[in-house]
Design a binder for these strands. Structure first.
Lengths: 247, 247
DNA sequence: CGAGCACTTGATCGCTTTCAATAGCTGTGG
DNA sequence: CCACAGCTATTGAAAGCGATCAAGTGCTCG
């Protein structure tokens, strides 16, 4: 359906994630080295990017679209353990096997680096190693934040938490502020939301309906969401209404 | 009760966590620099090491004992988001505020470094920065592993998962192997286990009783556990019985 | 128009929580 | 030595929340 932007980016200077990705701190000469080992790959929504347990031959950054990290038990229960948005890094320098499935949740474009050359480059480029540590610490914070959601929040609070995270990320990407009503499209199916929240898709659907009935959110169609009062949503999420606005 | 080993370690060469902590890859001269900014601190079980939101003036490694990272909601619900064992690192170079409470779960000894000097040393010591990245990636894996436990496992599976993790860590510390029955003491109260697992302490108690009745574990007193068949426990945890043995 | 998919809604079931009582252990003080 | 407080842990009964099973709706695409 979508036209594939297969190889349309080539210059790092024009890159939409230039200032946030693993290359954020790189200077011109470092970028040149990166350009020599990079290549773009596109995936369609639903495609698996990396299978858990596979050898990983590349690492890379999400340029556009959304990918998810998921774990699956033998009996089929699945838990999403990460949501990868533009500028997020995929891969584990120094590790061989992939610990999770990486799946394209929407159409996805990635900026990939061959793993070996990237590792060598990283070893002699503190700007990259440092940025990667920063990003990994952020991911760890996000994962721990999510442990509170999974372990202690009610279904309604879980949904509100997810909506508030998506709303904030969307605001930070589109540079609309957080004042006034927030409007965005849900990038996840009800099932993907359920996998992220540790719920069933039926419960997700019911709680979204309930939040809608109570006026916390408005829906047009199934995916287009308006949040009239962000403070209200964050109360529903059980979060401190103050602070956290700069995430 | 316990005699405080306040300042008894001073030489890194004799340090029990020398080969696993953030200093693992350091050479002799790097260790000397670290020695100049390090100091030991002891905490009694129950003491808070760092309060969420506080400025952190130091970073450091757990030398002995166990600490936990916890998050608390306004209404008092708490979720443990990390268990810090000997050699684990506390602190976030480059960040000021502490995102979580750090509490000594048992009597605890930490090897601390003043934050500023440590950051400066890290900036010019790739061995340290590299090891810290490795350790952070491991923590991220552990956190994601735990998200599956919190989101998708039953109470019984959660208890079995926790017991198997503690058993494996204990085995790796004491260097007893994983063959034959495993014996260890639970370092956590029922309430701390509940906070880790996203359960109530009553449910923890009930499920431990059930595992005992079914012969999956044996108990002497409240804390001393024997696991006659590790494979059986891992089946109860819902984990793949193969693999994962090298964690 | 009908198949397929994402989603919604209803009815019921069952696991975990909640509320409550009890047991066991340790330390204190009469 | 025993009584008692304070704490951790166990166990029971009842309630509630989310899961499960089951229709049914609305949309897109062939």
């Amino acid at each position: 359906m979508s036209s594939h932007p297969q190889l349309c980016h080539s210059d790092c200077d024009d890159c939409p994630i230039r200032h946030r990705a693993v290359c954020a701190h790189c200077d011109t000469s470092e970028l040149e080295e990166l350009e020599q080992i990079k290549y773009y790959r596109s995936f369609e929504a639903g495609q698996t990017v990396i299978w858990s347990g596979d050898q990983m031959s590349f690492v890379g950054s999400v340029v556009s679209g959304i990918a998810s990290l998921t774990q699956t038990m033998e009996d089929g229960r699945t838990q999403m353990v990460g949501l990868l948005l533009p500028s997020d890094f995929v891969g584990r320098p120094g590790r061989d096997g992939a610990p999770y499935d990486v799946v394209a949740t929407t159409d996805l474009v990635m900026c990939c680096f061959r793993k070996k050359p990237f590792e060598e480059l990283m070893a002699r480029t503190p700007h990259i190693a440092h940025r990667l540590l920063e990003m990994t610490l952020d991911e760890l914070d996000a994962a721990r934040e999510w442990m509170l959601v999974l372990g202690r929040k009610t279904a309604r609070e879980k949904i509100a938490s997810l909506l508030s995270i998506i709303a904030r990320r969307d605001a930070s990407l589109t540079k609309r502020g957080m004042s006034g009503p927030m409007v965005f499209d849900l990038p996840l199916t009800r099932e993907a939301m359920a996998d992220y929240l540790g719920l069933t898709l039926e419960t997700v659907s019911r709680q979204i309906s309930a939040l809608k009935k109570d006026g916390v959110i408005h829906l047009e169609g199934k995916r287009h969401v308006t949040i009239p009062d962000m403070g209200r949503l964050m109360e529903e999420a059980g979060d401190d209404t103050d602070g956290g606005f700069l995430v």
